[in-house]
Design a protein around this nucleic acid. Structure first.
Lengths: 253, 253
DNA sequence: AAGTGGTCTAGACCACCCC
DNA sequence: GGGTGGTCTAGACCACTTG
């Protein structure tokens, strides 16, 4: 078999298509520009619409495109760098944090949250909903679970489960002595509720940031923050202002 | 319009399917167990195979399933918590770090990397490839870019671009005074090369961790680490050993 | 009403793994 | 060779936005 292997590893059409489109986006389109619709694009490239969509989905996942039903497909702006540890060693709600309190209810958290908090399986905790925006657009939603034990002085007869109560819970939290926090980041898909808030469809890819706040030797609060994976780059440490991405693969020298 | 709205918001089949499967995984399957094949499952639920696949894809994205061509679909173990800032304020390659050097070449980095490093657009830099495994399975690959200026004493006539040279570069790096580092995490899709290394298909979802190491008032090294998004949970701070995930949505009390 | 992306179908063939 | 998941097709209909 001394023949030169041509097309011995035929890459999938959608993969090649994605590459072609990606290069076209770099050279021939500018941010915000709308692409031809999917049926036209598929015809132009001589593939089925489903195949084209596979390529578009990848590009959307990578934050290159933005698609909206009933509207069209546009070229997305570069990802937003959102700082995840603004005000290191500070409670949620401390002055200068990027979140906005939405509301607060008392409810029984999921079992895994109760485990982390060390509360009983049927014990309700303060559940604060907050949201985070960037130039007017929502980029993240958060559920902050605060056991009653962490805010003992909060009067039970407070505002009826609204933003005012959320702020009251956050205010009370500041009185605790924050000893430390640890975080985890993982890929998830948006729950129906979060998707609505983030202006995405259910199941959209999101980055789930879990933060445990430690005080008085236990987990005093637990935050589950859901960031839009297509538009956000989570930054830790400082600035994170530089754009870096993998380029085309190159030969070694 | 006083009628009660029934089915006014019909959820997509694949979404419902995903929920059903997810509950079945919790109650009727154990880790490592293999599921019926896609054709059987689709028939059992009375949907087309493509629809079933949409549900399976989501569950795989969430780390609940593992699918391998030619083999089958199995129930995935819980995600692995991988510490991203082991040995805080330490150079890559410092004792105890989790990475294993693979090789090292000198090549011109992508333009965005050159920008971050402040090197010329055609200036080759040391490009160290490393990999990270967890119980024998690859979980991440890394490209570490080190400008010649950061390792001035490295003799140019070193080992011919192999693991030995990689270790030599890392060793030289330790002599610099590390002033700080900053990180960013974002969703990306695996390049062909990384996908092979991670035992995934090209385009698989990955978490891209970009770390800039500062020394002598500039960026002395730049790391692009690619983690399997399906199997990894990135932890920052300390342990991160607790399992936390969103449960089913509940009513407020 | 017209046009967009989102969902779904019923088929076909391919690449890969294992027996 | 037989079974698996991965790719691809050519259609259809639906949900949503906009003029």
């Amino acid at each position: 078999m001394g023949t030169t292997q041509l097309e011995s590893v035929p890459e999938p059409k959608y993969w090649h298509l994605k590459t072609v489109l990606s290069e076209a986006l770099d050279s021939e389109f500018s941010v915000g520009e709308i692409l031809p619709n999917e049926r036209d694009l598929a015809a132009r490239f001589g593939v089925a619409r489903a195949t084209l969509r596979q390529a578009l989905e990848q590009l959307e996942l990578e934050g290159r495109l933005q698609r909206r039903r009933g509207v069209g497909t546009t070229v997305a702006p570069p990802r937003v760098g959102v700082s995840v540890d603004t005000a290191r060693h500070a409670w949620p709600g401390a002055p200068g944090d990027a979140w906005q309190a939405v509301d607060c209810v008392r409810e029984v958290p999921p079992a895994s949250v109760a485990d982390a908090l060390g509360t009983g399986p049927d014990e309700p905790v303060h559940t604060v909903r907050r949201s985070r925006t960037y130039s007017g657009r929502p980029v993240a939603t958060e559920l902050l679970y605060v056991p009653q034990a962490s805010v003992p002085d909060l009067s039970a007869i407070d505002a009826p489960a609204g933003a005012a109560r959320a702020r009251a819970v956050l205010r009370e939290l500041q009185r605790l002595d924050l000893e430390g926090e640890d975080r985890a980041v993982e890929l998830a898909s948006a729950r129906a509720e979060d998707a609505r808030e983030l202006d995405r469809l259910p199941g959209a890819p999101v980055l789930l940031v879990t933060t445990r706040f430690h005080a008085e030797g236990r987990t005093a609060a637990l935050s589950l923050a859901t960031y839009r994976a297509d538009t956000c780059r989570l930054t830790f440490g400082d600035t994170g202002r530089v754009e870096i991405h993998h380029g085309p693969e190159r030969q070694a020298s």
